[in-house]
C-alpha cells in the first residue's frame, strides 16, 4: 500500500501543481523518492515535528494548495490531535492526513505504534472524512480522489506493504461515500475495510464451501458512512458479519449495530474487532490480531463455520 500510495501521489502531483506532501521524517519508500527529486518544493520534510506537519499543511491549504500530511498513523493523528481538529477540521480544509500502518500492523513495535482507535477519534471530529482502502488498487483510487476533492479534511487509513489485491473483479466501482460490493451473494454478507479484508475473503470462501451465497463488501468510506447501503445489506441477507481491525467502539462494527437497531434489522449480525485494550504482545501481524481475539479460527467458530 505504501508504494502504491506514493505512486498515486506522484501521479497526482504531476497532474496538479497544487499537490504537496508534508512528511515527518518518514523514509521515502517507492515513488516518494521520485516525488522528492522531481518536485522538491512540494516535498516538505518537517523532521520529527508532527504538530507543525499539520499546521503547515493547513497553511498550504489556506493558500489554495492540496496537501497530504504523511507519517505513521499514530503520529499523524494522535500526536497533533488538536492541530487536526482546529487547523484542519474547524477550518474545513482539504488536507489529507495519511495514517500509514494503522491497526496493529507494527506488530513488533509495541503499543506506542498501534493505531486501534483512530476511526473512532477521527470520526468524532466534525467535517472529517475517513477512507480505509482494502487493497493497493483501492489505495490508488482513494489517493486520486483525495488529491482533487475540496469537501474538507480526510483521514486516509493505510496498511503498510505487500498487501494483495482483492478488487480486480469487483462488481461495483469505487465511489467515495458508497459501499463497494466486491462480489454479490444472497445469504451471507461480510462487511470489512482495510487490509483485514484478506480474512474476510478467506471467510467467504469457507461460507461458500458450506453452500452459502456470499456478498463481500468493502466499506472503504467510514465517514460519511453509507448508512443506507448498510441498512440494505442488513435487510437483504440472513447473516451479516463485520470483520474490522479497530477497537469495538466508533468503527464499522458499532455503526453497523446502530444501523441494525435503527432499521429494525432481522438478520443475524456478528461483529469481530480488536479489543478495547492495550496489549503487550509481539510477533507477526497475525499474532497481534490473534492476541486481540481476531484470529481466523475464532471468527470462523464465531460465525458457526467450524
Amino acid at each position: 500500500m505504501r508504494n502504491t500510495f506514493a505512486e498515486a501521489l506522484y501521479k497526482a502531483a504531476t497532474a496538479n501543481p497544487d499537490v504537496y506532501v508534508v512528511v515527518a521524517d518518514i523514509s521515502p519508500a517507492g515513488s516518494m523518492g521520485k516525488f522528492r527529486e522531481q518536485y522538491p518544493e512540494r516535498f516538505i520534510n518537517v523532521g520529527v515535528a508532527e504538530q507543525s506537519m499539520i499546521g503547515i499543511s493547513a497553511g498550504l491549504a489556506l493558500k489554495g494548495c492540496q496537501p497530504f500530511a504523511y507519517t505513521i498513523a499514530t503520529f499523524s493523528l494522535y500526536r497533533p490531535f488538536e492541530m487536526v481538529r482546529d487547523d484542519l477540521c474547524y477550518q474545513n480544509l482539504p488536507v489529507t492526513v495519511v495514517g500509514m500502518g494503522a491497526g496493529v500492523i507494527y506488530s513488533t513495535l509495541g503499543g506506542t505504534h498501534h493505531t486501534q482507535e483512530d476511526i473512532a477519534i477521527a470520526g468524532a471530529l466534525p467535517n472529517m472524512q475517513i477512507v480505509s482502502p482494502c487493497d493497493p488498487a483501492e489505495v490508488a483510487l482513494a489517493t486520486a480522489w483525495c488529491a482533487q476533492q475540496k469537501n474538507g479534511p480526510v483521514y486516509l487509513r493505510l496498511g503498510k506493504a505487500g498487501e494483495p489485491v482483492f478488487t480486480d473483479n469487483a462488481v461495483d466501482p469505487w465511489v467515495f461515500g458508497k459501499l463497494r460490493c466486491i462480489q454479490r451473494g444472497s445469504d451471507v454478507c461480510i462487511l470489512s475495510h482495510g487490509i483485514i479484508m484478506g480474512m474476510a475473503m478467506k471467510l467467504a470462501r469457507q461460507f461458500e464451501a458450506a453452500g452459502k451465497s456470499v456478498s463481500i463488501v468493502s466499506c472503504h468510506t467510514l465517514k460519511p458512512l453509507d448508512r443506507a447501503g448498510i441498512a440494505e445489506a442488513l435487510k437483504s441477507h440472513k447473516h451479516v458479519v463485520v470483520v474490522e481491525e479497530h477497537a469495538p467502539h466508533g468503527g464499522l462494527a458499532s455503526h453497523t449495530k446502530q444501523i441494525a437497531w435503527d432499521s429494525r434489522a432481522q438478520c443475524r449480525l456478528d461483529v469481530f474487532t480488536l479489543q478495547d485494550e492495550f496489549i503487550h504482545n509481539y510477533g507477526s501481524h497475525e499474532d497481534l490480531l490473534g492476541a486481540h481475539g481476531l484470529s481466523y479460527d475464532r471468527i470462523a467458530a464465531g460465525v458457526g463455520l467450524s
Binding site: I54, I56, S57, A58, G59, L62, K63
Partner: peptide, 9 residues
C-alpha cells in the same frame, strides 16, 4: 506553523 505553510505556498 500555518504561517510557515502559507509562506511555503
Amino acid at each position: 506553523s500555518m504561517v510557515v505553510g502559507m509562506a511555503l505556498a
